[in-house]
Design a protein around this nucleic acid. Structure first.
Lengths: 110, 110
DNA sequence: CCCACTACTCAGTGTTACTATCTACTGGTA
DNA sequence: TACCAGTAGATAGTAACACTGAGTAGTGGG
């Protein structure tokens, strides 16, 4: 992936994954696929799993292990109350940053 | 500063500084002040200087050392052609990320 | 029997912003 | 005179993050 985008994803990827889980519970492999559908083409699988380990440690998700007909068992992640709170906080930070940066871009186009 | 915002700034702060310099040439202390005016309240001075060292090493700016009546000499940074190209690339990456994330937020509000 | 797809894990690396501290120049004031 | 606030720049050490590259397993098809 581009180095620029890699750096930009720091701090946003976790929120993005939480947002995906807010739509519906999902397992890692599935989350990767959903992200790709939504334009996050070049995010490495390993990166997603690392994020999932992190949000699990922070207690933002509940976990179910369910068998798969197509491969090894899946770890299905469900956003819990703490996760929803964290997602809400993420949207707040994101909005603030977005506003400031877009204002800066507008200034430059005068 | 909030840990969340700290992480989000990674990858965007450099572009933000380039955008400030695109408005007009400025020196470090001045850039810090301009950022504070624009809502980036809690960015440490030292962080800005680190960014400036970086963009200098990458050849994105030209530098003038000019005396100050109020303190030590100032290092005035002016965006050059490479810097403008880098800023343009930043806006491209930012727009792409913004679009994807905002679309995800919209999906969640259905 | 091998391969592709599914599914998850992990060690090592490079980049980034922060904290805390330091140097140094000017002007005002106790 | 001595001190301090404001101006101006620099840096070493730290923590957090995403990536690369590799590995382990399970399933079904050629």
């Amino acid at each position: 992936m581009g180095k620029q985008m890699t750096e930009m994803l720091k701090g946003t990827l976790e929120g993005v994954v939480l947002a995906i889980l807010a739509l519906q519970p999902a397992y890692g492999y599935e989350i990767t696929a959903r992200l790709r559908e939504r334009g996050f083409e070049d995010i490495a699988e390993g990166t997603i799993y690392a994020v999932l380990v992190r949000i699990e440690k922070r207690g933002l998700v509940d976990i179910d292990k369910v068998p798969s007909e197509k491969g090894p068992p899946r770890k299905v992640y469900t956003l819990n109350a703490a996760g929803e709170a964290s997602l809400h906080e993420f949207w707040g930070s994101w909005s603030a940053l977005e506003t400031r940066i877009d204002q800066l871009r507008t200034e430059g186009h005068e």
